[in-house]
Design a protein around this nucleic acid. Structure first.
Lengths: 99, 99
DNA sequence: TTGGCATATCGAGAATAACCGATATATATT
DNA sequence: AATATATATCGGTTATTCTCGATATGCCAA
């Protein structure tokens, strides 16, 4: 875990908002056809709520993924993103013990 | 606590290093004349270890303080900085529960 | 294989952060 | 009052981030 990369990823209002949406996808996004919310939420749905362009949202999701905070699954034309809860647990412990 | 401000403050290698030094001041800094390490460590000592200029270090300490992660005490010509451990506990819990 | 979506990547402009050197402001000493 | 020391602030340069529009790529359907 690259600490600086993780904190940079978290240093943006919209990216924090996306993480918060992904915490309760059924509350924040319309039903997913495929496998409920198990794969996460696709880029287009996140884009639709974000108020930013598709390219910006795609870039933001990539940076969150590079930081290890979310993971992606490609299914057909869609890329689904979901939170990596282990990373948040690890970060919480890191701050508690090491930072 | 402004989350974005906190994460920005943590998004820099040198600032993380400073926080780490302040975690064990007696290990990383020569003895303080005044009140042991209870007031923290003065800017000059942090500057001396940092490899950056005095102005940069002063600015970094201000940003950590604005984020609530450290606090300062002025004693004579010196400003002592020390960690605000409650802020780190709160941040750890925030990440565990809310982010 | 052509066309249509969904997503990713590219190139660019504007805003912010990372530094620096120089200078200002406190405080202390003589 | 004059000088010295510690820290803060200011102005500037360069690097990085934010965000966009345009375009490329990947996958599906006709």
């Amino acid at each position: 875990m690259d600490q600086v990369e993780v904190f940079k990823a978290l240093s943006n209002k919209t990216r924090l908002q996306i993480l918060s949406w992904l915490k309760d996808p059924e509350v924040h996004f319309p039903a997913q056809a495929l496998n409920g919310y198990a794969n996460g939420v696709c880029v287009g749905q996140i884009h639709a709520k974000s108020g930013l362009t598709q390219s910006t949202v795609s870039e933001y999701l990539s940076s969150l993924q590079r930081a290890g905070l979310i993971s992606s699954t490609r299914v057909g034309q869609w890329t689904y993103y979901k939170r990596n809860e282990e990373a948040f647990k690890a970060l919480s412990k890191l701050i508690e013990a090491d930072i």
